[in-house]
Amino acid sequence: MLKLDDCTISSGDFLLRADLEIEAGSSIAIIGPSGAGKSTLLETIAGFRDLKGGQIFWKGKNLTTLPPGKRPLAMLFQDGNLFPHLSAAQNVALGLRPNGGLSQDEHQHVQSALVRVGLPDLGARKPAELSGGQQSRVALARILVQKRQVLLLDEPFAALGPALKAEMLDLVASLVAESGTTLLMVSHDPQDALRITRQTVLVADQIAHPPVSTAQLFENPPPALRDYLG
């Protein structure tokens, strides 16, 4: 269980409160008007921002003061998910060994991750030589080898076309299901949320609300969400 215990996030005029719990293994969409703090919430969970108050727990362990790399979670950002000067395989390898070389077994592991995401032959290519969809697949292969218990997606597929985005989300859904990973994904598109998540956290009016059923939320939206959906 991921627990945000009476958390307060603030910087300058910005303020967001979160007091909620997320079941381990569930898939959660984070939805809300732009500027409400969806990305900020994710960045805080990932450890890129300090909390003003409150604490974050994962399965009873306090994460609040851990640096980002020591938290049991992986994150994909809106952009910059690959190092442009490293090959696809090298980028994936960083998920296994961020600070050193790979053993023979680990090379195999990287290769099988690339096969799993559908890029068996492209390990030697640099990101610039890959399409947008292929770059996303490399990032997902790295997530795969990282084997973290929580995956945070900050709209990493926003730049892709609708069909490709749906394909990536389906790939994410199947990877998450295989490994039992807990998924939190920011989205501004209700269709994305409905596609691969059961529950949604609404971020609006300076509050990140506890998760509710995605389908029910859209059937009977609260005022803040209604304004956003238009």
């Binding site: 950002f77 910059g80 998920g95 600070n99 050193g100």
Partner: peptide
């Protein structure tokens, strides 16, 4: 700015970040 967050989330240490990025 561009790669610092990714390096941190991968748990890259300072020396690796300097050498490899």
């Amino acid at each position: 700015e561009r790669h610092g967050r990714l390096a941190l989330s991968l748990n890259m240490n300072n020396w690796s970040f300097f050498l490899r990025v």
